[in-house]
């Protein structure tokens, strides 16, 4: 198992956002998480990535405990994410946005940086090559020098995706990547998710309100409601689960 979430709970003040969540994610799976607004999906991501410290329970990645670690440390353990409300470095260039995600991967220290030694130039060139490669893959290469904030919405989502991949993740957490997309774009995202997962050998957890997408790309789906897992199984099973139909699909979405 790549990720083992065990009896995880979190509350904000008195509000219980998640209660006794247990989920296991095997390697190379594409897991979907669905649930009504406010059911605790984003909170789960925030706990996995160390943005909040879980009130209780444990999250283990390849056996290593994540609870209590700083977000950057967790990212370095190969967990990457995107945000529900896109969070780019808006005034920085598209290239910089990806470059920053390779922070700490260069094999040169502060001294090399300050004095622009040969080693620095070599490492820096490498980082830029890798960043360019990713940008080309995401068809962002023609925006390289543009400030990230000036990109159209769809490209901003793509850039955030590319930035997450630039950290060399094993586990990728995507928070509503299809939000605000038209059916054509959703179709493209569908394809993209599948080949990206293959190419980078990723395990992906996908939060999505867009049922069609979840049903098509995910091998397994977890349903949250009021911070509790109410159903879990293949898309087929979940779709037919009466409780799910009741709390979620039944509400006509």
């Amino acid at each position: 198992m790549l990720l083992v979430i065990d009896n995880l709970s979190h509350s904000f003040g008195g509000l219980a956002a998640l209660t006794n969540i247990s989920i296991v994610v095997p390697e190379h799976q594409l897991l979907g998480i669905i649930g009504p607004n406010g059911s605790g999906k984003t909170t789960l991501f925030n706990l996995i990535t160390g943005m909040y410290r879980a009130s209780s329970g444990s999250i283990r990645l390849k056996g290593q405990e994540l609870v209590g670690r700083a977000p950057a440390a967790i990212t370095r353990m190969a967990v990457a994410r995107t945000f529900q409300n896109i969070r780019l470095f808006k005034t920085l260039s598209v290239l910089d946005n990806v470059r920053i995600a390779r922070y700490g991967k260069a094999a040169c220290g502060p001294f090399d940086t300050l004095f622009r030694t040969g080693r620095f130039l070599k490492e820096e060139g490498l980082i830029i090559d890798q960043a360019m490669e990713l940008l080309t893959l995401f068809e962002l290469d023609r925006y390289v020098e543009a400030p990230a904030g000036s990109l159209p919405y769809g490209q901003q989502r793509q850039l955030e995706f590319a930035r997450a991949l630039a950290t060399d993740p094993v586990l990728l957490l995507l928070d509503e990547p299809a939000a605000g997309m038209n059916p054509y774009e959703v179709g493209k995202l569908n394809e993209q998710l599948q080949w990206v997962a293959k190419r980078f050998a990723l395990t992906i957890i996908l939060i999505e309100h867009h049922m069609g997408l979840v049903m098509e790309v995910c091998q397994r789906v977890v349903v949250l409601d009021f911070g509790v897992v109410i159903a879990e199984g293949t898309p087929e099973e979940v779709r037919n689960d009466p409780r799910v139909i009741d709390v979620y699909l039944g509400k006509g979405s």
Binding site: M51, A72, A80, R87, L88, F89, Y103, T167
Partner: peptide, 14 residues
């Protein structure tokens, strides 16, 4: 600069 732009995103980017 990433800290200036968005510290949370920066830490998520490692």
């Amino acid at each position: 600069l990433s800290v200036r732009e968005d510290e949370i995103a920066a830490s998520a980017a490692g």
